[in-house]
């Protein structure tokens, strides 16, 4: 990938939880419009890595920048940068005290200072796009997991982010709901969105990824195209992982 159109740049990042070294010398560049899928066994640090990109997890050393701008240390500019990075969580994290529609309108009004009418129109459009328009006046707790996650995606998209981060978006869903969420994510990849997806869904990685990053024990072990990774992986650890999950 050329460095010129790098959207996310991670250089020499290390992170410790106490004495536990969760991220070891991570280097990763994600180009504009690229879809990077991070795979790896649980506890490999893949989720932590995803969360460092918008500094939900602070790092101990190294540098992360988004669209050429280093992650600020102060919370004001950091909020500004985060507003351009959409994030979808494993647990959906919809605001429990707001309706579905309010969830999606919330940040555009509060952060982008959009007019409520404009934010509302855009929110309804996005909710329809992810297929939950009919639920707009319900509370999150009245929705199924799959519906909640689709609302969460709409909420992130409402900010017109430059980058979308997906932190195990289907891991807490019942099997029959995984597809409805993955379909929405796949649809997004076609629109040219820069995406980092941490997942256990191998099928998704095979079809939707531009590149696969394989992590184990806090390190990036292998970076390759999906074809290469799934058919002809280079390392023993990746082979072992694949033999377990495929």
């Amino acid at each position: 990938m050329q460095a010129t159109n790098s959207m996310i740049s991670i250089k020499g990042v290390n992170k410790w939880y106490g004495s536990f070294h969760v991220l070891k010398d991570i280097d990763l560049e994600v180009a504009q419009g690229e879809v990077v899928v991070i795979l790896g066994p649980s506890g490999s640090g893949k989720s932590t890595l995803c969360r460092t990109i918008n500094r939900l997890e602070p790092i101990n050393n190294g540098a992360i920048s988004i669209d050429g701008q280093a992650l600020p240390e102060e919370s004001g500019p950091l909020s500004q940068l985060r507003s351009e990075v959409g994030m979808v969580f494993q647990q959906f994290n919809l605001f429990a005290h707001m309706t579905v529609l309010e969830n999606v309108m919330f940040a555009p009004i509060q952060v982008r200072k959009q007019k409520p009418a404009a934010a509302r129109a855009r929110a309804i459009e996005l909710l329809d796009r992810v297929g939950v328009g009919a639920q707009k006046d319900k509370l999150p707790s009245q929705l199924s997991g799959g519906q909640q996650q689709r609302v969460a995606i709409a909420r992130a998209l409402a900010m017109d982010p430059k980058v979308m981060l997906f932190d195990e978006p289907t891991s807490s869903l019942d099997p029959e709901m995984i597809k409805e969420v993955l379909d929405v994510i796949v649809e997004l990849t076609k629109g040219g969105m820069t995406m980092v997806v941490v997942t256990h869904e191998m099928g998704f990685a095979q079809t939707a990824a531009d590149r696969v990053v394989f992590m184990a024990e806090g390190e990036i072990v292998e970076v390759s195209t999906p074809e290469e990774f799934f058919n002809n992986c280079q390392t023993e650890r990746a082979a072992e992982f694949l033999s377990k999950v495929l």
Partner: peptide, 10 residues
């Protein structure tokens, strides 16, 4: 409840 404060905020 808060992000870890930067040097300026501290």
């Amino acid at each position: 409840l808060y992000d870890r404060p930067g040097p300026l905020e501290r």
